[in-house]
Computed example of a mutant assay.
Amino acid sequence: MKYLNYCVYIVTNPKKTVLYIGVTNGLVRRLDEHLNNAGRPHTFAGRYWCHLLVHWELFANVQQAIAREKELKGWSRTKKDALVTAQNPEWRELNQEVGGF
């Protein structure tokens, strides 16, 4: 049986005014997709140039990852900002740390 890691992640735009929360089993691939869609209006992340990783969490189980994604999407912007700041106080772009870009 193949072991998969699932990831809940938050990307933002260069001005850090918009957040996108997603779940994936291939974070590097997904970040590349966000970068390739930057500026394209057919996706939310593309329309708002959200391709800069600022937070991620790993899960061994897809159901747990989906539940966490839904939880985070239900939070206020203030609470989401506090989560990112707690782990990444300077809101550094973490794409290179996970092998993207």
Rank of each mutant, 00 (worst) to 15 (best):
L58C: 08
H34P: 00
A65E: 02
E90W: 06
D32W: 10
Y6E: 01
T78H: 14
R92L: 14
H42W: 12
N25Y: 12
R47W: 06
K15T: 13
V98H: 01
I21V: 06
G39V: 12
D32L: 08
W56M: 05
Y3M: 06
K79T: 15
R68V: 06
W49C: 04
A86K: 13
P89S: 13
Q96S: 03
K70S: 12
Y9I: 01
F101E: 01
F59C: 05
F101T: 00
G26S: 14
T24H: 07
T17R: 08
S76M: 12
T12R: 03
P14A: 11
L53G: 05
W49K: 03
N36K: 15
L83Y: 12
N88F: 11
Q96L: 04
W75D: 02
N5C: 03
H55C: 03
W49P: 01
V11Q: 03
G46E: 07
T12I: 00
Q96I: 03
G22H: 03
T17H: 05
R40G: 07
N95P: 04
V84R: 05
T17Q: 11
E57A: 13
F101R: 11
Q87T: 15
Y9L: 02
R29W: 06
K16W: 02
H55I: 01
Y20L: 00
N61I: 13
A82H: 14
P89G: 13
N13I: 05
L4Q: 11
A60C: 10
I66V: 12
N37A: 15
L83D: 06
K73H: 10
D81N: 11
T85N: 06
Y3Q: 09
N36R: 15
V98T: 09
K79F: 13
G39S: 10
I21T: 00
T78S: 14
Y48C: 02
N5A: 03
G26A: 14
F44K: 09
F59L: 05
G100Q: 09
L72C: 04
N5H: 02
L52K: 10
A82T: 13
L58P: 01
Y3D: 04
D32F: 09
I66P: 05
N37K: 12
R30S: 07
I10C: 08
Q96M: 05
Q87F: 15
Q96K: 04
L31F: 10
H42L: 08
V98C: 08
V23C: 11
L94Y: 13
A65M: 07
M1V: 10
L58H: 09
L94T: 07
R40E: 09
V23H: 00
T85A: 09
V54M: 11
D32Q: 12
R47E: 09
R47G: 08
K70V: 10
H34W: 11
N25C: 08
A60Q: 12
T85W: 10
Q87I: 09
Q63I: 09
Q64V: 02
K73C: 08
L35V: 02
K15V: 10
A38W: 07
E97Q: 14
